[in-house]
């Protein structure tokens, strides 16, 4: 088996694990990690596409590499936003559990 085939299969496997995790995951953090696995799988497949030089007939097509970098940045910021929401959620839940000293307006 050639390297691109192996890498392509690995990318497919990563994507499959990611999709499975996103669909069955109960916990938001687990689903966020599954999203990152899925993203990794997709980027790997894109890298394999670049290796095949589908676009311009080069030995290695530069377009997917540029796009993968953009995609990684976007996925990173998505993860950061999700983690920020998760942390806020944890804080709010903790506050909701703690006994409230005085009622401060309606929730």
């Amino acid at each position: 088996m050639s390297t691109p085939t192996v890498m392509g299969l690995l990318g497919a496997a990563l994507s499959a694990i990611g999709i499975y995790g996103l669909m069955v995951g109960r916990d938001a953090l687990a689903r966020l990690l599954a999203f990152n696995l899925l993203g990794g799988g997709v980027f790997l497949v894109f890298g394999v596409v670049a290796r095949r030089g589908a676009g311009a007939g080069f030995g290695a097509d530069p377009v997917p590499q540029a796009l993968v970098i953009t995609g990684i940045v976007v996925a990173f910021s998505a993860t950061a936003l999700a983690v920020a929401l998760l942390r806020r959620l944890a804080e709010l839940r903790e506050k909701a559990r703690a006994p409230r000293p005085a009622p401060e307006g309606e929730a």
């Binding site: 990611g18 689903r31 999203f35 997709v42 377009v63 936003l81």
Partner: peptide, 30 residues
């Protein structure tokens, strides 16, 4: 915040599946 997080996870799932499709199309047609 709970609703936002759930929305975000659904939306991210949607975008990454979209990206997977776009990647396959690039692989097919360049």
């Amino acid at each position: 915040v709970e609703a936002a997080l759930r929305y975000l996870l659904f939306a991210l799932f949607g975008s990454v599946l979209y990206l997977l499709g776009a990647v396959i199309i690039y692989g097919l047609y360049g």
